[in-house]
Design a protein around this nucleic acid. Structure first.
Ligand SMILES: [Mg+2]
Length: 232
DNA sequence: GCGACAG
DNA sequence: ATCTTGTCGC
């Protein structure tokens, strides 16, 4: 993946929403919902924080068995696009691809703080990234973008998330005091496996460790930058 | 036309 | 996502 390929798939500048939609459709042609991974040894999480029209993207890599952090990196870039529902992949994609390529430990799978195939045309951030970078991914979000579901009540309970007559993911009651989280395949992960893997990563918090830690790392990096700016 | 709408 | 302390409940 060189820079021109990176821009081709992730740079929204000088492109219309119509063109961006075409790119999403093009990428989705290669989507796979079959498990395309072997034994998972390393799993990464990714999340972004914002300030001054800048995006801070953090990606920790964890040991799948212990869930301990093996490595963590982050990048800071200019925000390339405002938030537009269903186009999040073009707002966070470039930054995420950048941190991903800086990792020394290549994860077997990545958990995103966003949608996967639970998107109007299955082009959620996790799915789009997975297909373009050819890596297994899962999307874990806090709110539904599309689809309907019953509400899981008991901790550990899950309910199918259905969109246009097809199951595109799950609602999972991950914590006693939290609203359910939404779990969906990104790429190269089946609907059932996405749920099993996310459950494995739960430690009593609302979010699975990969995403929970990524959120914290992004917030910490942002805070350090703002404090440094004050001293300058 | 109106309302919904990941982060 | 972001701006932010206290407060209610388990
Ligand atoms: Mg996020």
């Amino acid at each position: 993946m060189n820079n021109s390929e990176l821009d081709y798939w992730f740079d929204p500048s000088s492109r219309t929403l119509e063109e961006l939609r075409i790119l999403q459709n093009k990428a989705i042609e290669n989507l796979s919902l079959e498990d395309g991974f072997g034994k998972i040894e390393k799993i990464a999480g990714v999340d972004c924080a914002y300030f001054d029209n800048k995006i801070v993207c953090a990606m920790p890599v964890l040991d799948y068995t212990s869930l301990d952090v093996i490595e963590k990196k982050h990048v800071v870039q200019k925000v390339p696009l405002p938030y537009i529902p269903t186009y999040l992949n073009f707002r966070e994609g470039k930054a995420i691809a950048s941190v991903f390529m800086e990792l020394e430990n290549k994860p077997d799978l990545i958990v995103f703080d966003s949608c996967g195939i639970n998107h109007p045309i299955k082009a959620g951030m996790a799915t789009y990234f997975g297909v373009v970078m050819d890596v297994p991914t899962i999307g874990v979000s806090k709110k539904i973008l599309c689809g309907d579901s019953e509400t899981p009540v008991e901790v550990g309970e899950s309910q199918k998330l259905v969109y246009e007559g097809e199951q595109v993911g799950w609602l999972l009651k991950s914590n006693k005091r939290s609203n359910p989280i939404i779990v969906a395949p990104g790429h190269k992960v089946s609907v059932d496996s996405s749920l099993e893997i996310v459950k494995h990563c739960l430690k009593g918090y609302k979010l699975p460790e990969p995403t929970r830690l990524a959120h914290m790392h992004a917030a910490e990096a942002k805070k350090e930058i703002l404090e440094q700016n004050d001293r300058d």
